[in-house]
Design a protein around this nucleic acid. Structure first.
Lengths: 242, 242
DNA sequence: AGGATCTAAATGTCAGACTTTTAAATGTCA
DNA sequence: TGACATTTAAAAGTCTGACATTTAGATCCT
């Protein structure tokens, strides 16, 4: 782990990068304790606050965790699926909100990805995951549900569908995409009729998943995508028409 | 933007979260200048180093950028697709390397996602993207190519395939998944015969994309997945057998 | 008017001290 | 001897104050 004191880049950036590289290369392994801040500042020939800023950068990415007290220090963190998932949701949400990604683009991506796991989910879903899907469909049929709550339930339904594939890598990738779309979805208001159509499609998808019929699940998702996009275009048209 | 001085959480964490929330909620908009470090430390009633650590956390996530000099300061960053993509690759790579994700799991996820964009790519790919795919296939046929270079070309091929879908959200999600798998792929050695089979499948896929035949593209990807997994299982079996 | 210089504001870095947390060593008592 | 309380030391967290560096804008001179 070395840094170049003549580089134009900030020292704390360089130090963070050096440690990050050491972690990625396997030089530092999970749960290994990094040298103390004092030792690091000595090693890199910089002050302790500078080292600290570098460590904060890494902590922000969940690459390390710090512990106070005797035998404390900074430890290489095992990046959990939960951490990765949380980061992905934040990144995706910001990306969508800051880059004028159109609803259609986001929607297309989301359903394309979901259709990719439908066959796996049809083959492997647990009874529990199926029950979750059914429960969310039931909730979606309840009168008096706010639009935001309806959307949240929608996300939960799709989350169960994705988790049904039994592939944590897929879940991690997809859950981010689905959840990041929620703010966009929340802009839509659903009439009772819209809700009926959507929950009908959800039922069709759940039935297909239960029967292990992957083709039906995919086509149900396709119809759901078409329906969602139609709904959204109506809403946006009405909004711009006013 | 407020913090709770009695919270058990570290101050710098709280401050970072408060600013992050302000960005996500739209209270702070893109390119807006944050108050100076001195003003922030005054506002939150903490010292400047503490504020700085908080800002470093945000900078690590590309949420803000800092500029020195007069009229410098911290600015809300527009999260670009490139930044998001880079973060995703790092996260995915670490996730795979630290969590003993099996080759099969990662492979399954990757190809499931790729099959999801094949139909879009078949419908929309540009001539340029198709040319990139052809060029990579050609490169893969060159003798004397190292295994690592072969893998890199493989990634470039699939990258072009994904980009062909013309959906930046999909590209961002998928490129990360594909690239993160590269270290795993690099563990495999390819015989000349293996390479011939793979480039053959690549050609089949490229042909299907060119013809706009999405079904053929999907089945080509399916066969490529089967082939890759068979290859990997052979390699791992041979390795453990020694 | 245009370019060189100066100035001020902001971040980057440093040094050292103090506070808080935590685990381990030590001591004490039943 | 063993369980519990106490001390201690190490480490991160925080603060104060200072200086260095960068940069935009104001000022001044030609």
């Amino acid at each position: 782990m070395k840094i170049d004191p003549n580089s134009p880049a900030d020292l704390s950036v360089q130090i963070a990068q050096a440690i990050k590289d050491a972690i990625i290369s396997g030089e530092l392994i999970v749960d290994e304790r990094l040298p103390s801040e004092a030792e690091l500042s000595d090693h890199f020939q910089v002050s302790r606050p500078t080292v600290r800023e570098a460590l904060k950068r890494l902590a922000a990415q969940s690459l390390i965790r710090t512990q106070r007290g005797a035998s404390g220090g900074a430890f290489v963190n095992r990046l959990s699926f939960e951490d990765a998932y949380a980061q992905q949701v934040t990144t995706s949400t910001l990306l969508l909100s800051m880059n004028e990604v159109s609803f259609d683009t986001a929607c297309e991506a989301r359903y394309a990805l979901e259709r990719a796991c439908a066959p796996l989910s049809a083959a492997r879903r647990s009874a529990d995951q199926l029950a979750t899907m059914r429960a969310e469909i039931f909730r979606q049929g309840q009168p008096g549900l706010t639009d935001v709550a309806f959307c949240a339930s929608d996300v939960a339904f799709h989350r169960a569908l994705v988790d049904g594939a039994g592939n944590p890598v897929l879940s991690y990738q997809l859950a981010g995409a689905v959840e990041a779309m929620q703010p966009l979805m929340n802009m839509i208001t659903f009439t009772a009729r819209d809700r009926a159509v959507i929950t009908g499609l959800h039922t069709r998808i759940a039935d297909a998943i239960e029967a292990g019929n992957s083709g039906a699940a995919v086509s149900g998702l396709q119809d759901l995508e078409d329906e969602t996009r139609k709904l959204a275009s109506d809403v946006f048209a009405a909004r711009s028409g006013r």
